[in-house]
């Protein structure tokens, strides 16, 4: 492995135009609006139209990136797409993105099937491959459309998840440099967050998302605070020296419960749920982008941790460098 300082240079995201507000959710599902906004933490959720797919969202996120960077299109060496709600069981979404965006045929591309831990896993995979094979520019796309797998009548999932896609450019010009990673898996609880028979067709109850909210809550609150300690130890950083914790935006209740367990100031835990809802593997890159627009300071330590489907989790610590707007 080389000693190249590879990092995140830019992040773009795409949200579908169909918006559901907390007023809509409260009225439709019989919740108090205050409960939806203050406890679940959601004010707006984004939903794809019936003819808009994960591929469409992926292409739109990447095209935003390419539009802002002339010359990049021809110079991407690696494309990784993280999704679990792709248009087809096969082929992989990445090859269709390559085609739709006119990326070179010489590009390496593949999908990874992960949920909310996917961004952190993807980042580590991309960085490793760039160092191993001397790639200059890589793009990591995260994209999911849970609206297509959620039962319209399941108020617990319907009031939480948003559709979204992000494109992250990783290069030698990175302004967010990652430290050591840690990973984890507990397949004993694979069926606590599951779609048993997703075929892309609507109206089939077998194709709907099942989430055991209590089990997922128990997992995150009993696992992630310890993982935060572990990733700090692995990076030889005192937990108190972490400037901000950018966790997967599961729900406000989950983030606040984890914050409480860590004993750290809850204001250090970044929360953009109100703007975007739970966007699965896109929640960390969207939160990073939004956070850095507001807090642009070199040398900040940002702990990122993704956790969910699998059950699976991954964490690292990012350090901001120079102009850290992404």
């Amino acid at each position: 492995m080389s000693d190249r300082k590879i990092g995140i240079e830019a992040i773009e995201y795409y949200l579908p135009s169909q918006v559901t507000t907390s007023d809509d959710l409260a009225e439709r599902y019989g919740f108090d609006k205050e409960f939806v906004e203050k406890k679940v933490g959601v004010s707006n959720l984004y939903t794809t139209q019936s003819n808009e797919t994960v591929l469409d969202m992926s292409v739109r996120a990447l095209e935003k990136m390419l539009l802002a960077r002339p010359g990049l299109r021809e110079n991407i060496d690696l494309l990784v797409v993280c999704t679990q709600t792709s248009n087809y069981q096969l082929p992989q979404t990445s090859s269709q993105v390559q085609s739709k965006c006119n990326l070179p045929n010489g590009i390496a591309s593949f999908d990874i099937s992960l949920g909310c831990s996917g961004f952190v896993y993807g980042l580590s995979i991309v960085e490793s491959m760039m160092k191993s094979y001397g790639f200059s520019n890589a793009v990591l796309i995260t994209a999911d459309a849970y609206s297509k797998i959620i039962d319209e009548n399941d108020r617990n999932t319907k009031c939480l998840f948003s559709d979204a896609a992000t494109a992250t450019l990783i290069s030698d010009n990175g302004v967010l440099l990652s430290g050591e990673y840690i990973f984890g898996t507990d397949g004993d609880f694979f069926d606590r967050l599951i779609v048993t028979n997703f075929s892309g067709s609507e109206g089939n109850s077998d194709s709907c998302l099942y989430m055991d909210g209590r089990a997922i809550f128990n997992f995150t609150v009993s696992t992630i605070p310890d993982e935060i300690d572990k990733v700090c130890a692995k990076n030889k950083i005192d937990k108190g020296d972490i400037d901000h914790f950018i966790l997967h935006q599961a729900s406000r209740f989950v983030i606040q419960s984890i914050a409480k367990k860590t004993g750290e100031d809850k204001d250090k835990f970044v929360d953009y749920l109100h703007k975007f809802g739970n966007t699965v593997s896109s929640s960390i890159p969207i939160a990073l982008k939004e956070f850095l627009l507001e807090h642009n300071k070199t040398g900040s330590k940002l702990l990122i941790s993704g956790f969910g489907v699998g059950l699976s989790w991954a964490s690292t610590i990012l350090t901001t460098k120079g102009e850290s707007n992404v």
């Binding site: 406890k39 679940v40 909210g213 209590r214 009993s222």
Partner: peptide, 23 residues
Amino acid sequence: LDSLDIIGFLFEVEREFGIKISD
């Protein structure tokens, strides 16, 4: 307590007493 608070409370009960409480 609302529904989410109850999830949190039962989690703490399970931890405190080393038991599992099914739905």
